[in-house]
Nucleic acid binder design. Structure first.
Lengths: 221, 221
DNA sequence: TCTTTTAGTGTTATTCATACGCTAAATGAG
DNA sequence: CTCATTTAGCGTATGAATAACACTAAAAGA
């Protein structure tokens, strides 16, 4: 049976792009400029190019929307409910991405549509099943905090240990013990001191660190 | 932009079906009856029906191949390398399933093609990128042993704690301490004693247990 | 110089994971 | 019938990882 015997679904990729802004976990949404769900907010995404790997396509979308390259991107889940899209059968391969706060100024530069960051707890109603996708991405992120260094991908190149702790507290929504956190980070052996310190206002300046292997995410425990 | 502007890939589901037979972790493979890769072994799977959810489709495939229903099924990963299929662009949503050893007699009853169980360490060369899919499924299974009760899905309805331990040892490929294992299982609070014991040969009979909630997989630790 | 603010550091208690050896109950052999 | 063999079933002690907890240091601004 040749493949052409089978009707084909459309296939898209959608990306949940997280960052930390204003001490909040935020997500990038696009205002839809056409039906269905015209005027609603949605996750950035698009149809897969037939010559392109899924991950490559997602990276391309990501760069189109945010202007950034070389960010953390992970396949999340594939959503294929037959009536998730009123236009017909559309299967979407969802990804999630983490962008360091420093690199988000370039957002939506190449695209005419309205794109905005929303605090995760203040997201409007979303098109399609994008709320379910977002929820799943958030759950995955929270779960991974416990056993990997993914969250380090939200850091700028130079950072203090307090910066890093604040990221964890922001995503978890609860404070952590400073001494235990610092001991844990040091034990991972993935960051190193730089020669610099950061003076931010009228307080003791903090040591700046950098990652030993910036793109690397390690599984721990 | 209507969806019809975009060329569509074909979409399939493939399933890595695991069981324990002869104290080995085994996987069900199908001999391909047509090109490409005619005569090679491959994972069971098929094109997605446009009216069917991905998981539902995978369950249908699973029942067609093995005759079993109500088994553990989990979406694994979506493979979309543009040249993974010589016929053109075919994206596959891969699943993995766990079937209790007792229920596998019915295998391949409804399908004319040759279907066989292979020990995981004795799998022949596979069609397409199915070797990569299989490897990923196995890695996922091994990882989940540590923090969930998935492996309990390989048990018959009544089982001894030694049966369960043997499953863990078979998948991990290394022995475990009997007392610690039993303490761990008891602490999970997901199994209960039955009134029966099993006498198997010339040794002390073992207490038979059952799961409190047979289909349930809990995340632990 | 004094107040405010964040940075930075060790020790103890608790919890969890690991290591380890003997008795019990059945069967089959002699 | 008793003895040997085989698997079932159980508790404690040690080490490792995690969690709780409070003060001093350095800078800036008043």
């Amino acid at each position: 049976m040749p493949e052409t015997e089978y009707p084909k679904p459309s296939v898209t990729t959608d990306i949940v792009i997280f960052t930390i802004r204003d001490e909040q976990l935020q997500v990038l949404l696009i205002e839809r400029g056409m039906p269905p769900f015209e005027g609603d907010w949605a996750l950035p995404g698009g149809f897969v190019d037939l010559s392109e790997d899924l991950t490559t396509g997602a990276l391309r979308e990501l760069e189109e929307e945010t202007g950034v390259r070389d960010v953390y991107l992970e396949q999340l889940y594939t959503f294929g409910n037959p009536d998730r899209d009123p236009r017909g059968r559309v299967i979407t391969v969802a990804f999630f991405a983490l962008i360091p706060s420093e690199r988000i100024e370039l957002k939506a530069s190449t695209d005419a549509r309205d794109a905005r960051w929303f605090a995760i707890d203040n997201v409007p109603a979303l098109a399609f099943d994008h709320r379910a996708i977002l929820d799943k991405a958030r759950a995955r992120l929270v779960a991974k905090l416990n056993y990997s260094t993914v969250a380090f991908q939200l850091l700028p190149e130079r950072f203090t240990l307090s910066d890093l702790q604040k990221i964890y507290e922001t995503i978890r929504g609860e404070p952590m013990d400073k001494r235990n956190f610092r001991k844990w980070v040091q034990s991972l052996n993935v960051v190193e001191e730089t020669a610099e310190r950061r003076s931010a206002g009228r307080q003791r300046p903090a040591m700046l660190y950098r990652m030993k292997n910036p793109g690397e995410v390690v599984i721990v425990r």
